[in-house]
Design a protein around this nucleic acid. Sequence first.
DNA 1: GGTCTACGTTGACACAGATCAAAGCTCCTG
DNA 2: CAGGAGCTTTGATCTGTGTCAACGTAGACC
Lengths: 245, 245
Amino acid sequence: MHARLNSLSVPALREACSQCNLRELCLPVGLSDRELGQLDELVNLRRRILRGQHLYRGGDAFEAIYAIKTGFFKTDVLLEDGREQVTGFQMAGEILGLDGIGSEKHTCNAVALEDSEVCVIPFTDLENYSREIGALQHHFHKVMSREIVRDHGVMMLLGIMRAEERLAAFLLNLSQRFTARGYSPTEFNLRMTRNEIGSYLGLKLETVSRAFSRFQEEGLITVHQKHIQILDVAGLKKLLSERRA
Amino acid sequence: MHARLNSLSVPALREACSQCNLRELCLPVGLSDRELGQLDELVNLRRRILRGQHLYRGGDAFEAIYAIKTGFFKTDVLLEDGREQVTGFQMAGEILGLDGIGSEKHTCNAVALEDSEVCVIPFTDLENYSREIGALQHHFHKVMSREIVRDHGVMMLLGIMRAEERLAAFLLNLSQRFTARGYSPTEFNLRMTRNEIGSYLGLKLETVSRAFSRFQEEGLITVHQKHIQILDVAGLKKLLSERRA
DNA sequence: GGTCTACGTTGACACAGATCAAAGCTCCTG
DNA sequence: CAGGAGCTTTGATCTGTGTCAACGTAGACC
């Protein structure tokens, strides 16, 4: 049992995956009913993580990956001097912990930004099952590959986009992920602070705040604290494709 | 057969991996002699890519991953407006093409920066073999995971480091990878232009050039065109850990 | 051996975003 | 409901890196 685990560990129900409404987004994608039943055996533990708590920290032994059942997380890496780089924000159906496989230790921190629940997927078991279930093996590879592609997208943000382009890309990305989960594409609450957005986008919180204000002045969005409404999706997309001189 | 393939395809020798001097760096890590023999069956094609040629392009169908046998590559993504983000530089023993698994299409370009040779690893075959060879499966997962961790490192570069920190980190990273391949840790030739380094580091080529000059003035390195000699490894490392006020 | 082309260096200046500072909003606690 | 903590907004100013421009260098090709 993990020592740091002051979060609740819930012995899982049978039918962890086969009854889960996230099965079209999460690890089980592409599995037959029979295979889904096998996955249920694999995923037999859940953990509740309260807002602000860590699911894991950099340096922790890697034993499992985690599928987010409910809630919202950030992952970040800290430099010794205190600088923080947020490497991603994760929502329901997404997988956490893939960074730990290579070194058998986690290499970043995963922090709940709201009260959350994750399904614990012991990694050795996952490897065993995926040797038997080809569809699981293949989908797991896809999940990892997409994580790499997502990271390339962040590199584009950080490497070549200007502040407002970064924020527009960020909002459009959130919108698209909320949509995939059945929420409104145009209206949502941010779970993270301006500082965390800034850290993700390689900007200071003041710059993020100013960009929000600017978007609002231009009628692209409305902002009230963490509540965002996108008024002009096309306008945001245009920001991305056109390079100011 | 790939249409774009004006590069040579060499029918492989038996013993692709078992006799390869990169087997301690590449996919075969951790395999027994018997398993190595099985890998030889999997890797039965090589391709030569001349300097400047593409191994694959964004949008190409994904069919295989590639292990670099000799040579040096860059991967990059282009925005419609012509902006380029170099997402990585790859050398012998490293794996290319992992980005394509998720969408069954490559999502970036891989370009040889010098005449190179790669081992073609058909992905479906790899999945089949790794269902039988647990050590191969596990090592492949490690390779993918390390790619994710590497990407996080680039995000740190781009998100929170200043120009000279980025370049110092870049040089130290190259040094360490050359060392792992039996080359000098302190003296090597860059295979990429200042522009490509800049694109990778989120800087303009002039800034890269100035940072090289500055390092040279400070006695950290010598630079003659592409030839780099690191004079003061500790000094470069110090640049990384200390935040100027 | 001269010329061409691609790449690299250096300088002067501009600007996007950082930094510093002050004040406002919201929610929580006592 | 007063006070405080944490977060956000906005303004003024500063600065690291970008941009523009000129010149230098090296290798390739005729």
